[in-house]
Simulated scan of single mutants.
Amino acid sequence: MQVLKMLRSFQHAIRGLGFLMEENNSKFHLLATLIVLLIGFYVKLSGNEWTIVIIQIGLVFTAEAFNTAIEKLCDFVSPEHQTLIGKVKDLAAAAVLIVSVVAVIVGIIIILPKILSI
């Protein structure tokens, strides 16, 4: 019985990933991820470098998922414009921006020297 419950949880999570990939920002993050992965293979990242890059990718998608969930909840709770709801949505978007900027900086630190040495 527990196994079936767990499998249902995975179904919900996979459905959530589908919802996430419907978002324009997630599509942009997916494109950026594919580019970074291709460059990573091209410059032959080490195991440690791959670990750091993959963690950054995971953090960006996680932040985007939370941001999307918060936005959807805010839109449901308050369909009309409210200043406080706007601040909540802006804060959630800021979290994605922070994680994304850090990911870009980490990517530059790891990948740029390899590209320059080619």
Rank of each mutant, 00 (worst) to 15 (best):
K44M: 11
L4S: 12
V104P: 06
F19A: 01
L59G: 06
I109T: 10
I35G: 12
V106N: 06
E23T: 12
I115G: 08
I109R: 02
L30Q: 01
I54G: 08
K87A: 13
G107H: 03
T62A: 09
G86Q: 06
A94L: 13
A95Y: 04
A94Y: 15
N24G: 06
A69R: 12
G47Q: 14
K114A: 01
A103F: 11
L59V: 05
K87L: 11
G18Q: 02
Q2N: 13
V43T: 10
K114R: 14
I108L: 01
M1S: 04
D90F: 06
I118Q: 01
S46G: 08
I98M: 03
K27Y: 00
L116C: 03
H81F: 05
V88C: 07
C74T: 11
I108S: 00
A63D: 01
L20W: 00
H29R: 02
A65P: 03
E49T: 05
Q82M: 14
V53I: 10
M1V: 10
L31R: 07
H12R: 14
A92T: 07
N48Q: 05
I109W: 11
H12I: 10
E49C: 04
S100E: 13
F19H: 05
I54M: 15
I118H: 11
L59C: 09
T83H: 04
I98P: 04
L7C: 12
V106H: 00
S78G: 05
N67C: 15
Q56P: 01
L73C: 04
Q56A: 11
S117F: 03
S46C: 02
W50N: 04
V106S: 01
F66R: 06
P79Y: 08
L97A: 10
Y42T: 14
G40Q: 05
G16R: 12
A32P: 01
E64R: 10
I85R: 12
F76A: 12
I109S: 01
F19N: 00
L45Y: 14
I105Y: 02
G107M: 08
K27T: 03
L112A: 14
I57K: 07
G16K: 03
H12F: 12
L45T: 08
V77M: 13
Y42S: 11
L20S: 00
R8L: 14
F28S: 08
N48H: 00
K27N: 01
I110G: 10
E64P: 00
I115R: 05
L31P: 02
V104Q: 00
S46M: 09
I35W: 07
G58R: 14
K114F: 01
V3M: 13
